[in-house]
Design a binder for these strands. Structure first.
Lengths: 209, 209, 209, 209
DNA sequence: TGATAACCGAGACGGTACGTCACGTCTTTAA
DNA sequence: TTAAAGACGTGACGTACCGTCTCGGTTATCA
């Protein structure tokens, strides 16, 4: 994601800015863009506010004014990546629902930015902002999970005694293992196999092909 | 008459292997212990060689003499945690084998030290020493995986078309998700449920209870 | 029509000279004072930036921000010692002029600080900042020397063929030998004897008593 | 009953005086040569035992075994430079004697090694070994000085009230200033001028040309 | 002719200092 | 108020030498 900042700075010293008009949005955007670049370059650990500010051609103070910690800064930069997870999918079949849930996560994990986000979420000791962001989104909202399970149960697809969260989290955990430990891309074929395993694992009898 | 000088022969007398004062075992032990404490306290990022040396009451130089990087240091400290993973279990049933494979990993992940190790392994961008250690062990040796699958196949328990690695990695991924994102302990009950899901997911027909 | 881009113009807006928080005078003063103490204690070699900062109760960074090298630091600390050398004396007689030139140098060399400065100036291999400071001042400005000689020549006091620099430097060299090798104080009586020798050495005939 | 403990008697078996492997002359020579090179390269400050040992292809321990301090090491390396100063010259004239005294010092100061020695002698705060060596030799032995003065007095060449030491030290100080502050070579012509000044400075009437 | 004591290379070890980097807070000027 | 700029104390980085120490292994001398 590249952000283009219009180079409106005049060459001379007068520096005529609209009086009272805060330039805040440009600074904010430039910083967040820089964060994303730095995250991809150096990872979460190894990201320094100083370098971010330098890259954004913005002063360190202006960064700290907005985000008090490195965590908050990264969290803010990541917010945009996760806007499409809020939808609770209803495709009519459990396989479809599982796939609909896993696919955007896999897609996220296929991008370098997404990998960085996951890594950041997992690396922080304290349950800080980044963890919150990631858990809130990657962790798949509770409603989605329970409604998927409820619908599947109504269709007789959900085996008794299976914890819905455990099933979904297994799916997500597998993706995480794939990209962070195996360092392999979560391809479509691979995802098919995964959904297949989990689907059979939680199905009451034989799943419909 | 040709004079051949072998390129690899050093000019002086051959270096003795055991020359010089040997490294003190006490120093090594103190440092590794300190690393484990610091890891639990501050995590992988946030672990500083300086503090480790201070806590071990050892000189910084003595640390750097042994381990050139922070990664290597942490990796060394973690080696000991993982000595019981090398056994390839053969329990007679697929469920037993899966459990035998997952249980020590879960046990590791139940300790603060183990959590720190996992976090460290996942947080590093470069596939450095820590990643190697973790991958080598947590990533379950390839032989174990394939032999488990082979035996299950021979018993007719393994569904055709299921990638052995994918199955096992799903198991491991779920444990990682549990401890690092959910921040919950991988209890025995929880592990039972997990093994159940994965077992059914890869079984040919109905698994034997 | 050719577009000429001046090479020295920076790309952004022109840097303001007085931007940012100004350097604290208290810090500067504390450091220089500490340097003088350390110089007296440990000499030029053996002076460490770390200890200076510690003694000044100031951070090492704040020292390096101001003075890039140990040399520059010492040179700065010594500047103040030398403010009274700039005057070119005209006492009416050659003896008076010589004395007026030698006296403040001797006075400087009578203080521990001054001895340290001389030592520092002589010990540095490269002709660095300290050497510059010392040479500039202790080395007696060229104008002073030549004007003294010119006036003496006009009065008929200066023997033909005597290099003015050589004469003055002999004076200074004797003082250096006195304090650094003999490690004795350049007393008034001693200085009288020295001036007497040099004066007779460069006089045309018999000097006027 | 009095208990007398003989101070010098060792408790164990009587120490053999000359037992053990003697120190290798080759090692000693190699080290001293290396010191001279390093002194010329890096000066007295900036000379490190570690580098000396490395250059001499000798172990650090072997250096410390012989010379306890850096000072002692340098002093030893310099000893050889100064063997020709012990002679008290008697040339028949004061000018000749002065020249005979000054010439070898100037010659020493014309070599890089000699400059390093002078610098070392002047830079040390404590009157350590190097200072001792230099003072003992460059400082011109007291007997030489007094005998030169005595002979000159007998010839009627020495002005009453002139301190012999002061005269000679002025000569030496001028050479030091020449090579260390002016950083110029003490050429023959220059030395002639110097001797001329000092000679006239201490002569009773007019010096004999 | 051995024992023995010192030499010698090698390198560990606790120190101190190096000069640099990033941190997060602060003070100052200008817009 | 926002901003740019930069000072400031803090703490860590990884490296270089310091001088001392423990090691094997070697060699000359003396009993």
């Amino acid at each position: 994601m590249t952000l283009v900042i219009p180079a409106s700075t005049p060459p001379g010293p007068p520096r005529r800015r609209d009086a009272g008009r805060p330039r805040g949005a440009a600074v904010t955007a430039a910083v967040l863009a820089a964060v994303r670049v730095e995250l991809a370059d150096a990872g979460f650990e190894g990201l320094s506010v100083e370098r971010v500010a330098r890259r954004a051609e913005v002063n360190k103070t202006s960064v700290y004014r907005r985000w008090p910690t490195r965590e908050a800064l990264v969290a803010a930069a990541m917010e945009g990546l996760l806007d499409d997870f809020s939808v609770s999918p209803d495709t009519g079949s459990l396989r479809g629902d599982l796939y609909a849930l896993a696919a955007p996560i896999a897609e996220l994990a296929a991008q370098p930015d997404g990998v960085a986000l996951l890594r950041a979420a997992l690396s922080t000791t304290a349950s800080g902002d980044v963890g919150t962001v990631a858990s809130r989104r990657v962790g798949a909202p509770a409603e989605s999970v329970s409604s998927i399970a409820a619908r599947a149960r109504a269709r007789g697809e959900w085996r008794d005694g299976v914890d819905p969260q455990q099933a979904i989290f297994t799916l997500v955990g597998a993706i995480i293992h794939r990209v962070l430990l195996e360092r392999a891309a979560p391809t479509g074929e691979w995802l098919d196999g995964l959904v297949d395993i989990v689907l059979r694992g939680i199905s009451a009898t034989k799943p419909q092909p």
